[in-house]
Design a binder for these strands. Structure first.
Lengths: 206, 206
DNA sequence: TCCCGCATCATCCAAAGGGTTGAAGTCCTC
DNA sequence: GAGGACTTCAACCCTTTGGATGATGCGGGA
């Protein structure tokens, strides 16, 4: 009896690595691979995998959380196991809320991945041990430290202000605002003002 | 002389709480409880309460606004008082348009609830004072009605998605997304995605 | 003192976003 | 079946945003 798995990751290398690991086990069987959330939905609808192993960050297209929600809306719904590199609690919680069975850090041992898949297939909740306690305690992973000035810019950003408007409001030039924004984007791990707003609101930064 | 009241809320705990509050008053009398909008309609048709105290969010089934509209179509029509946790302008306006006598925030004092019920029974309009002006403003320039598709785009927009990502998520082209955005911006009276997000969140559109 | 983080500003360039016009197809209503 | 709302798409143009790089001045701490 093998557990069928669909791999979803935008990095071919990661997919190959996962496939190698999983192919070596006789308890799981990879039935497909997808590079995007959209592709994952199409494949899952046809292949009916028991478990979908899905990266949280999928590059272009819908993200892992949205993909999770859509996958869980399928009938029969696969168990969704989130793969993530970073332990951003907000995103992990979002995935859990979207119906994920749990998440695994990409750095865990192969056995842990296989074990996680088997447990997810059984309906268990799978949490990386070093993070499980934090999630349960409701603690947050250390949020990036923004400076006061950066928070000011972020707040104005969230009201929909343009760089020019932010500059006027803070009595600086647009160049300065852009400089702050670059730092903010970097710290939040985003690449657009809209996503910065979203992350800031999700993490309670503003 | 007591005012008869029907309670509608999907949470048994909330219903119990309201019943306890109202049972303590001799000016109102709870004649029934319903967990869903559908149930509320059946009970109201049989019990003829003077006032229906209805939660805006009812979980499964029809929502508070639809329930309000249906209740007001009864003969005799009960006064409908909306209970809500959040002061989401869009939903409140929808309830008022559907014929609600007003709304109460769940956090208000028991006396205010009883007072609101009595005033609603007399045909008065009941609005939480801090929101009344906003609602009146809204009545002058009613919130633009966004189509379902536009709301979908708006939701993705609020997550920080780019046009390309929205296009992929909705299986349309970027041209279509831009078209929707132009309409959304026009209806919301804004000129950038960030500001659209802000306005949408402020008004409870999303 | 010297280094580092912070805030400030500048320039250049590519990409994304936004505005406009026009159009085709569907669905619903009058 | 005519008209209207909605959704879809395209082509054009202009503005804004974001990325890269570099520079200045200020303040605190090793």
């Amino acid at each position: 009896m093998t557990t069928t798995v669909l791999l979803v990751d935008d990095h071919p290398v990661v997919r190959s690595g996962l496939r190698a690991v999983l192919d070596a086990a006789d308890t799981v069987r990879v039935v497909g691979e997808a590079a995007t959330g959209e592709e994952a939905l199409v494949l899952a609808a046809h292949l009916h995998p028991e478990v979908v192993l899905c990266d949280l960050r999928l590059g272009r297209g819908i993200d892992g959380i949205q993909t999770t929600a859509a996958l869980r809306a399928l009938d029969p719904a696969p168990a969704v196991l989130i793969l993530t590199t970073f332990d951003r609690d907000a995103e992990i919680l979002g995935a859990i809320e979207a119906g994920a069975a749990g998440y695994l850090l990409k750095e865990v041992a192969p056995d842990a991945i296989i074990d996680g898949i088997l447990r997810a297939a059984l309906g268990d909740t799978v949490l990386a041990p070093d993070l499980a306690s934090r999630v349960l305690k409701g603690m947050r992973s250390p949020l990036p430290r923004l400076t006061e000035r950066e928070i000011e810019v972020l707040r104005l950003l969230a009201t929909g202000s343009t760089n020019k408007e932010i500059a006027r409001a803070l009595f600086v030039t647009e160049a300065t605002v852009k400089s702050h924004l670059v730092h903010i984007f970097s710290k939040l791990g985003v690449d657009s003002r809209s996503r910065a707003i979203h992350v800031a609101q999700q993490t309670g930064l503003i």
